[in-house]
Computed example of a mutant assay.
Amino acid sequence: MSHSTEQTPERPTGQAVPTSADVARLAGVSRATVSYVLNNTSAVRISEPTRRRVREAAEELGYVPHAAARSLRAGHSRMVLLPSAHIPVGPLYSQFFHDLQWELRRLDYTVVQYGSVGLKPDEAARAWAELRPVAVVSLGEVELTEQSVELLKRSGARAVITLGTQQVPGTHSLALDQGRIGEVAIAHLIESGRRRIGVVVPEEPGLGMFSQPRLEGARRAAETAGAAAAGAGADAAGVAVVPLPLRYDEESADELAGRWRELGLDAVFAYNDEYAMLLMRALQDAGISVPEETAVVGADDLLLGRLLRPRLSTVHIDMVLGRELAELVDRAVRDTDVPPRSRRLLDSRVVRRESS
């Protein structure tokens, strides 16, 4: 005797949970047609009036497809797991992840955010694997290992995609070149004649994965300028980069601005536009003119920076589009024979405005 994969449990009210068979009877179609319509299957041609009739019947009955049963039929889930960020990534990255989720939903994936705060790589991989996602897109806060990627794939993940600073074996790795942001900012300030340049290093937890590479990039730009000066017979020791720890609050900014002349800085790369706006206001309140006494450069090219006076110079970052990443996820899920590859992202350029 055969058994349907769809059970009919009792609701607390005593009413039976509607099934696809109920939808099929009400719509006057087969259960297969109901499945094709509600799962957005494109391989089978179904007329629009039939699709509309099935959807209306499902809505009338309050029928929702069973995710587990759907996964069994398809051989995999349609869940894409996004480990949720516990770091303040800023408007640029927030918009990117919003777009990514929207585009994945358009491709008929279910997006699930998973809080992974405090989990080690293997712990995180086991926790994610329990949900049996078809793909995992990791920002890089959890530094996945080759072993944790293999665990995810054994549990059914067809694609593991990382956005970070390193390539992880077995993943499609999108390397975010944070160092380049610091490099172009400092190169611009040096070209503007600045020689003692502060670099803001946020003290907020989790931002080190962004701020440290930007600081290293700033130092590379200073070394390059020094080497070029030495080659031209000029003073190679003319450029200094000074790390400036800063919390994202007015008290910390005011304290740093109060020591500014003692530090002898004539410019600052302020990590991003938000920290730049915070620090620039504190500098102006302390009587330090921008850009005459100190040039200020941010990053992310936020609209608000253009509304300041002076208008904020910034590093414009060409992020990968959410649509592009969603399509990469879809290709990797559909074609598991595509070998994992690495790709560098984040082309950066300075937009010079009044603050530098």
Score class of each variant (00 low, 15 high):
S42K: 13
N39Q: 11
T13Y: 06
V168L: 07
S42Q: 13
D335S: 12
P310K: 11
T19D: 02
L303Y: 11
V117C: 04
D347N: 07
A32D: 10
P88F: 05
D99Q: 15
A129C: 06
R261G: 08
L321V: 07
V29K: 00
V338C: 07
K153S: 08
R261M: 01
V137E: 04
L72K: 09
L308I: 05
A21N: 10
D318H: 14
H172I: 04
A68C: 03
L100Q: 08
L104H: 04
G264L: 06
R311Q: 13
L151G: 08
R132V: 09
P340S: 10
G322D: 06
A229S: 13
T294F: 02
G75W: 05
G206F: 09
R323H: 11
D22R: 10
P88T: 09
G298H: 07
I186R: 03
D22N: 12
A135P: 08
R220N: 08
A135T: 06
P18A: 05
V111A: 13
A43W: 10
D335I: 08
S4W: 10
R261F: 02
V17W: 15
A257R: 04
G264E: 02
R105N: 15
P340F: 03
V64Q: 10
E250D: 14
Y271N: 08
R259E: 15
D301V: 05
G28L: 07
T33G: 10
S71L: 03
E216Q: 14
Y271V: 04
V54Q: 12
D99L: 12
R353Q: 14
L256R: 13
E216V: 00
A58V: 12
L189E: 00
S192C: 11
I87P: 03
T162H: 03
D347E: 09
L131R: 15
A85D: 06
V241T: 02
T5I: 12
D235M: 12
L278G: 02
L265K: 03
F210V: 07
A57F: 00
V136M: 01
L256C: 14
V111Y: 15
A229F: 05
A67L: 13
D330L: 00
A32I: 15
W260N: 01
T41Q: 06
V338W: 10
